[in-house]
Design a protein around this nucleic acid. Structure first.
Length: 560
RNA sequence: GGGCGUGUGGCCUAGUCUGGAUAAGGCGACAGCCUCCUAAGCUGUAAACCGGGGGUUCGAAUCCCCCUACGCCCGCCA
């Protein structure tokens, strides 16, 4: 363990166990900053240690031996405070050594297969569905920081009914009859066919045709298969272009059709047939999940989505040591079923799923079919424009090019931050005003703090900091900032443990805010006695901000 | 009808998993801070009986039960 707070925590645990003579896991918590770095409430200890909580706290405080800090008793609590000189030296030192890799945890030698954005490719991503890639990509980034190897996959449903509807539209509708496209991009162009076809379907005219197309496709008729695949590919190209702007990429694109073609679905079917909890009804195979039947095939023997997804997961599990799926809350039941089925097949490890709630638009539902949505492209574009306005307001010295560059990074950062900032299971009601607010809890707030560090460092001009007497960093503000930096690896650890990327957004705000306080109170370049030391601290903070921003997939800026 | 999830100042959110010491940020409101490393920043004030009710506990926003509002699901769709 290379980070000082991690080491101190272990020291406390060992010390407490030793002092009390117990082997039980000690529930150390993190109190408010003024009280210390760690705390131990002694109430619960009365169960297996003699005395009142206050007495236990007293005894513990007397007896515990800590190499890098001290224990202080406050009533029934023992507060542990790390030795500040040690904390400063270790934190700043490690940070300078690791630079923007600071925060990285030890290599886990495990490969995670992370699946996200496996939507029906029937139109452009809207801001509701965009929650999926942003969550998924941030998870991938934080798992990598935590020392895992990650393979990011996108599963493309190119055989579904949605694609059939789109394809029907492409074959039967005239572009001139469709509403004008709002953007010159393939997904925006094609979605209009899907939407119009859906309308016709609702009017009950074309159900037969759609079903016939699905049958043809499933019988393996080349022409139909090709159409389905091509259209889903085209839409995916548009989606991937949008995601690229957010710096989101996939390592593997897995087409559902490939699982049919290579016999994976066939194999999965055979394995499922052999299960005790499987049964047949009119020739259709089902799996009995609790008291519900989940059908795997139709009466005509063709496969259904649950079966194909089982096949996909069997394939995935062979490629890594763990699986994580990012899914909309409408897939909860499916996720539960999938786990049960895989467990019955003896597949392990089972996938972990992260479900997110949908995003509504000023209180209304979003629907691709009905066209009631804000596309991710529009969101990004508007964010960029708003950011450009803000840049122009304050930087007359920027060239056109600089304005655009900064506007893009600020705007796109705001988009990602806006989505990742809230816990996945909470619903988001999208409001333009909030999403485009670049003050307070936002990406630009963090980027701005980073730009301030860059400003100081570039004015200084660089040089050797090895003569810095780090123990001179003993002011309240300086120590607070060091503490915030030192917390970073632990935040990564926690975020991964709980699959909660939003914690990292929170942390980024805390760190930026802590730096802003330091910036206000502690002149760096004009400091008479601590210039080198403060520079060293600013540099450490610079690396840390850059690292957390990159974990969030947000670009750092040196000026804005 | 059943299952899962959500409900925290006027508004948006953190804290809930792993119960602890005065419930934390932001927006908005009000009052302030740029001869000083970028004011996309900072300081201060007002504002919350943590959806409601029971329970467990020395201690509950956090755990359990009931109720309520909202969302999602309960297809030989995906």
């Amino acid at each position: 363990m290379k980070y000082p707070l991690q080491r101190f925590r272990e020291e406390i645990k060992k010390g407490v166990k030793g002092a009390l003579g117990v082997e039980k896991e000690i529930p150390i918590e993190v109190p408010e900053e003024e009280r210390g770095d760690y705390a131990l409430p002694c109430f619960a200890l009365t169960e297996y240690v003699e005395g009142s909580p206050v007495e236990i706290a007293e005894r513990l405080t007397d007896e515990i031996k800590l190499e890098h800090g001290k224990a202080e008793q406050t009533g029934p609590y023992v507060n542990f405070k790390i030795d500040e000189e040690y904390l400063v030296k270790e934190t700043v030192g490690t940070c300078h050594e690791m630079e923007h890799e600071f925060g990285e945890l030890e290599e886990k030698k495990k490969k995670i297969i992370l699946e996200h954005t496996s939507a029906n490719p029937n139109g452009p991503l809207h801001i509701g569905r965009a929650r999926n890639p942003i969550l998924g990509d941030t998870l991938a980034r934080m798992y990598r920081r935590a020392g895992y190897e990650v393979e990011v996959q996108c599963y493309i449903n190119d055989l579904g009914r949605q694609i059939a509807i789109l394809t029907w539209g492409m074959m039967n509708l005239d572009e001139d009859d469709l509403p004008e496209r709002d953007r010159d991009k393939v997904d925006h162009r094609l979605v209009r066919y899907y939407q119009r076809a859906s309308e016709e379907l609702e009017e009950g005219e074309i159900e037969e045709n759609i079903e016939e197309m699905i049958r043809k496709m499933e019988r393996g008729e080349e022409e139909m298969l090709e159409r389905f695949e091509n259209h889903s590919k085209e839409i995916m190209e548009g989606i991937r272009e949008s995601l690229k702007r957010l710096d989101i990429r996939f390592d593997v694109l897995k087409h559902e059709s490939s699982l049919m073609a290579d016999g994976s679905v066939e194999d999965a079917l055979k394995r499922m047939e052999d299960l005790e909890s499987s049964g047949e009804e009119d020739g259709a195979l089902y799996f009995e999940s609790e008291d519900e039947k989940v059908f795997l095939t139709r009466v005509d023997g063709t496969s259904l989505y649950p079966l194909r997804d089982i096949a996909y997961h069997i394939w995935k599990v062979s490629r890594g040591d763990g699986m994580i799926n990012v899914l909309g809350e409408d897939h909860k039941l499916h996720g539960k079923f999938l786990k049960e089925a895989l467990e019955a097949l003896g597949v392990e490890p089972l996938p972990e799923s992260i479900f997110y709630s949908f995003v509504s638009l000023e209180g209304e539902k979003m629907s691709t079919r009905k066209g009631t949505y804000v596309t991710l492209d529009d969101f990004m574009e508007t964010a960029h424009e708003k950011a450009r306005e803000e840049v122009l307001k304050r930087r007359e010295d920027f060239t056109e090019e600089e304005v655009e560059r900064v506007a893009e990074k600020v705007g796109i950062g705001a988009v990602r931050f806006n989505i990742i900032n809230v816990q996945p299971e909470k619903p988001i009601d999208f409001r333009w005003d909030d999403a485009l607010d670049f003050q307070g809890d936002s990406a630009p707030f963090v980027q701005y703090a980073h730009a301030r560090t860059s400003g100081i460092l570039s004015k200084w001009g660089g040089g050797d900091l090895s003569d810095a007497q780090l123990k001179k960093l003993d002011g309240e503000r300086e120590i607070s900032l060091v503490r915030a930096i030192a917390r970073y690896p632990l935040e990564i650890e926690q975020a991964v443990k709980n699959n909660s990327p939003h914690r990292l957004a929170r942390y980024a705000l805390d760190l930026a805010s802590e730096f802003n306080n330091f910036y206000r109170d502690c002149p760096v370049l004009k400091s008479e006695d601590k210039k080198l030391e403060r520079l060293a601290l600013v540099k450490a903070c610079h690396f840390t901000l850059k690292s957390i921003l990159s974990t969030l997939g947000i670009d750092a800026l040196d000026s804005m």
